[in-house]
């Protein structure tokens, strides 16, 4: 039953993610005074890339290079589908929040390793950067998510967090811990989405799209899909763990939750990415060790203090 639901959720999360990418590009363009591409441009891109030739660099580790975009996008879509299932209430497993975040992490890592296996020196530089960035933001992100979902039953699950918020209102608005955790999570989101100011791994002017450099055609389509799904899943996770609003009926609440995800992503990914310059690699690690880490630990502390 659950397997069937996950299968149904997969195209849903993929479509929603690509659609958000379209919104992102449109809003970004309008903020810069441009007309921008049509909303469905990411779909056009996806279909067109799929139809192109598959090119594998001779110097690459062929198996890793060709399979990792597929695996990565599959993992990201699975993470998104699990989240949707949790939101719908059909998945009630303790710790699925941790599972979702881990899947996203592995998806990112796989893509980096796959890209780096191309043998391109830029991809190698990008992998070194990527690993350091990954571990610097994943820690505060994980802590803030744990702080958010620790109150529900089943423990550390999307369904539990949703049940809790249906009773007592959005977590970020009803508790100090929730507000702090949301702030920390929002600061981590640009890194999850690999957008400025934290796009040091794929910065085009510095490392020429980094590990994505050699990917093209269907591989690039899948790699972009993986990125796009990770980005939107993170936003949806934030919206469901921190800002789930009880509105009476579940479908309305789910729609509101999705809308909330778009708004959160527009703030922390689209707007932030437009307003600021890219930071240096060292600055990324330094940044996440300070503000987001402090906020996340503060959230955890506030949670524990509130309980005892």
């Amino acid at each position: 039953m659950l397997a069937l639901e996950l299968l149904a959720a997969a195209p849903l999360i993929a479509t929603a993610s690509l659609l958000y990418d379209g919104v992102d590009r449109k809003v970004r363009a309008r903020m810069q005074g441009r007309v921008g591409p049509p909303l469905v441009q990411p779909f056009y891109d996806f279909v067109k890339l799929l139809s192109k030739d598959r090119i594998v660099p001779r110097a690459s580790a062929r198996l890793i290079y060709t399979t990792s975009p597929l695996l990565s996008s599959a993992l990201a879509v699975t993470a998104g589908s699990l989240l949707l299932a949790g939101l719908a209430g059909s998945l009630r497993v303790p710790g699925d929040v941790v599972l979702i975040l881990s899947l996203l992490t592995v998806a990112s890592l796989l893509l980096m390793v796959g890209g780096a296996s191309s043998g391109n020196p830029y991809a190698a530089v990008s992998l070194a950067r990527g690993v350091s960035v990954l571990f610097s933001y994943k820690v505060p992100m994980m802590i803030s998510v744990i702080a958010a979902s620790a109150g529900g039953a089943p423990l550390l699950s999307v369904a539990g967090a949703v049940e809790l918020q249906r009773k007592s209102g959005p977590l970020a608005l009803s508790s100090v811990s929730g507000a702090l955790a949301l702030a920390s999570f929002l600061l981590c989101m640009p890194s999850e989405g690999e957008v400025t100011p934290f796009d040091v791994t794929t910065a085009e002017t510095e490392v020429v799209y980094g590990f994505m450099i050699e990917y093209g055609g269907p591989y690039l389509a899948l790699a972009k899909l993986a990125k796009s799904v990770s980005r939107f899943t993170a936003a949806l996770l934030a919206s469901s763990l921190f800002l789930y609003t009880p509105l009476g009926s579940r479908p309305v609440e789910l729609a509101a939750c999705a809308l909330g995800a778009v708004v959160l992503a527009l703030i922390s990914i689209t707007a932030l990415g437009t307003f600021v310059a890219r930071v240096r690699v060292r600055q990324v690690a330094g940044f996440y060790l300070r503000l987001p880490m402090v906020l996340a630990l503060g959230a955890l502390a506030a949670l524990l203090l509130g309980r005892f």
Partner: peptide, 16 residues
């Protein structure tokens, strides 16, 4: 310069 720094708002402002 804005483009090099990934600072798209500056990039588009200057070009506009």
């Amino acid at each position: 310069l804005g483009y090099q720094l990934g600072f798209t708002a500056l990039f588009m402002y200057a070009w506009r």
